[in-house]
């Protein structure tokens, strides 16, 4: 089982400093990272992916991240970045197939790669768009394409930087339901607290680069959120609630 361990992580850039003592995330956990802008959510994600390097120790299944070659890391975890671009006209299908790159032998994709690509195109409702160029799509459609690419990577841990950014409410529900019903570990900074509370089962609360709390759903209290966001958070019936029809 792919277990993620972080201990004594310390990272400094300019005046910003991120420090975390000890976190262990076991396979299959759905972890939301909450915190205000600039609290270090994306930085933490980049550290966990080895895109930034700090002091301390990050390990996957007991293997230290720094010692894992870049090509092998792609088999352990996948990342959905906050914004994504594809320069030049690549089709939706081609971009989703990029997700199979870590598994490709030499310069060719196998039949299995093609089948999985097909599967993920259907899963994210993209079959009708397959031949369109990525750059011609709307922001939400592009997001779904990138998500399909990330899932197509078939990594046991998935990092998603604000997965529902620019998605409408129906696709947000679809995607959160999809993600949280899967076997993969999901670790995602999420801005919408209500959605996070509904779909995730563990919460890392960050404030100015420090871990304020690491709690399960039933321990996520209004007081804790008040402290995290510096706004008065109360628990009550929301003005609108959302369910699939």
């Amino acid at each position: 089982m792919a277990e993620l361990r972080v201990s004594k992580l310390h990272f400094k850039r300019g005046t910003f400093c991120l420090a975390l003592d000890d976190i262990t995330i076991v396979q299959g956990e759905k972890v939301a990272i909450l915190g205000e802008n600039g609290s270090g959510k994306s930085t933490l994600l980049q550290l966990l992916c080895g895109l930034l390097s700090g002091h301390g120790r990050i390990s996957y299944d007991g293997r230290i991240l720094k010692n894992i070659p870049v090509a092998e890391r792609a088999l352990l975890f996948a990342l959905l970045t906050q914004t994504s671009e594809v320069i030049f006209p690549f089709s939706v299908e081609e971009v989703v197939r990029f997700g199979r790159f870590p598994h490709a032998q030499g310069n060719n994709f196998s039949d299995e790669d093609d089948e999985l690509t097909e599967h993920h195109l259907n899963m994210l409702d993209l079959s009708a768009l397959r031949d369109r160029h990525f750059s011609q799509l709307s922001g939400g459609e592009q997001r779904r394409v990138m998500l399909a690419r990330v899932l197509n990577q078939k990594a046991p841990i998935i990092y998603l930087d604000e997965p529902n950014a620019s998605l409408d409410i129906r696709h947000t529900l679809d995607i959160f339901e999809l993600l949280t019903s899967r076997e993969e570990t999901v670790i995602a900074p999420v801005h919408d607290i209500n959605l996070a509370e509904r779909f995730f089962d563990r919460f890392l609360l960050l404030k100015r680069g420090t871990l304020l709390a690491d709690v399960k759903r039933d321990q996520l209290t209004p007081e804790l959120l008040t402290e995290t966001y510096d706004v008065q958070v109360a628990c009550g019936a929301a003005a609108f609630t959302f369910q699939h029809q």
Binding site: Q46, L51, V70, R73, L79, T81, E85, I87, F98
Partner: peptide, 24 residues
């Protein structure tokens, strides 16, 4: 170049995405 054609394709993505797909 042709030996690395697939790798080169990944550079069409942003740098972080390409890196986490296993391209140095």
């Amino acid at each position: 170049f042709t030996g690395r054609a697939l790798h080169l394709n990944m550079l069409a993505l942003d740098e972080h995405s390409a890196q986490t797909l296993g391209v140095n």
